[in-house]
C-alpha cells in the first residue's frame, strides 16, 4: 500500500512521541543509577558494584536466580509428562487441564496470595522458611504461559505416532517422554522456560506478602535507604528479562520459518 507523505510524517512523529514516552523512564533510571549519593556532582559506577558487594542484595539475587531455576525444572517435570499423557491417553481430560492451567491468568495474583497464606504457613512449617519454597507458588503462576508454549509445539509434532513407534521398539514411558518427545519440543520448552524466568525475576506480589526476600522485595526495601543502588539493580534485572524475552521472539520466529519451509 502506498502512503501519502503527510501520513508518513504523521507516522514518524507519532512513533517518536511513543518512543519518548517509553524510553525516557528507562534512560532516567540509568541516569539515576550512575549518580553519586546525596546529589553530589559527577558520575560513578559504585551503585552497580553495590549489587555484588552488598550482602543482603547479593543473597536476594542468588535466591531469585535459584528460584527461577527450580521453578523451570519443576514446571517441566510436572507439565511435560502430564501434557503428553493427556494428549495420548485421555484426550477427554484436555479441556479440563487447559482450564486449570489458564485459571491463574484470570484470577488476580493478589487473590491467589490471600487464598494461599494458610497453605504456606504449613509449607514453611514443614520445609523451613527459605525463599525457595516459593517455587510451588511460582509454578502455578507460570502455568498459563508455559502451557501455551508447550501446547503449541506439542501440536506441531505427531506425538501419537512417535510414541507408538518407540513403544513398539520396546521403550518404556519414561524413555518415550524423555528421549523421544522432549527433544522434539525443545523449542516450546525453551520458550516456556524463558518466560518463566522472566516472570519469576520480576514477581513481587507473592514474595512481599508472604515475607520472603527475593530480588524485587529487596529492591523495594533498598530503595528507601539507597535509591541509586536500587535503581541499578532494577535496571539490571530489567535488561536481563528484556534480553530473555527478545530472545524468545527470535526463537518463535525461527520456528515459524521452519514450519513454513517444511
Amino acid at each position: 500500500m502506498r502512503h501519502s507523505s503527510g501520513f508518513r510524517a504523521f507516522r514518524a512523529i507519532g512513533l517518536l512521541v511513543f518512543a519518548a514516552y517509553f524510553f525516557i523512564p528507562l534512560l532516567a533510571m540509568f541516569d539515576f543509577s550512575t549518580q553519586v549519593r546525596g546529589s553530589a556532582e559527577g558520575r560513578t559506577w559504585d551503585n552497580w558494584a553495590f549489587m555484588v558487594t552488598d550482602e543482603d542484595l547479593r543473597s536476594s539475587i542468588v535466591a531469585s536466580l535459584l528460584l527461577a531455576v527450580f521453578t523451570v525444572v519443576l514446571m517441566v517435570v510436572l507439565l511435560v509428562p502430564t501434557m503428553v499423557w493427556v494428549r495420548l491417553r485421555v484426550p477427554r481430560a484436555r479441556a479440563l487441564i487447559e482450564f486449570l492451567c489458564l485459571l491463574p491468568l484470570t484470577i488476580p495474583a493478589l487473590v491467589i496470595v490471600v487464598g494461599i497464606t494458610n497453605v504456606y504457613s504449613w509449607v514453611t512449617y514443614l520445609l523451613g522458611d527459605s525463599a525457595l519454597v516459593l517455587t510451588f507458588a511460582y509454578v502455578v503462576l507460570v502455568l498459563p504461559y508455559s502451557y501455551r508454549a508447550i501446547d503449541a509445539s506439542l501440536s506441531g509434532i505427531d506425538a501419537a505416532t512417535l510414541s507408538e513407534a518407540a513403544r513398539s521398539l520396546g521403550a518404556g514411558w519414561f524413555t518415550v517422554i524423555v528421549r523421544i518427545i522432549m527433544p522434539n519440543i525443545t523449542g516450546g520448552i525453551l520458550g516456556a522456560a524463558f518466560i518463566a524466568v522472566a516472570l519469576v525475576l520480576g514477581e513481587y506480589v507473592f514474595a512481599s506478602l508472604l515475607h520472603f526476600d527475593t530480588l524485587p522485595v529487596a529492591m523495594a526495601a533498598l530503595y528507601k535507604s539507597n535509591g541509586p543502588a536500587a535503581m541499578a539493580a532494577a535496571l539490571a534485572s530489567m535488561i536481563l528479562v528484556a534480553v530473555l524475552l527478545v530472545g524468545l521472539t527470535f526463537l518463535s520466529r525461527d520456528r515459524h520459518k521452519q514450519g513454513a519451509s517444511s
Partner: peptide
Amino acid sequence: TLAVSGVLAQFGGVVLAFAWIATIGPVGVL
C-alpha cells in the same frame, strides 16, 4: 517495535515504579 511491545507489556512491578520515580519523582530527571 512489535518485539519491544512484547517486552514492555510484561514489564511491570517494582522496576516500573522505580523508572517513573526516576523520571518525574521529586528529584526525577524530567
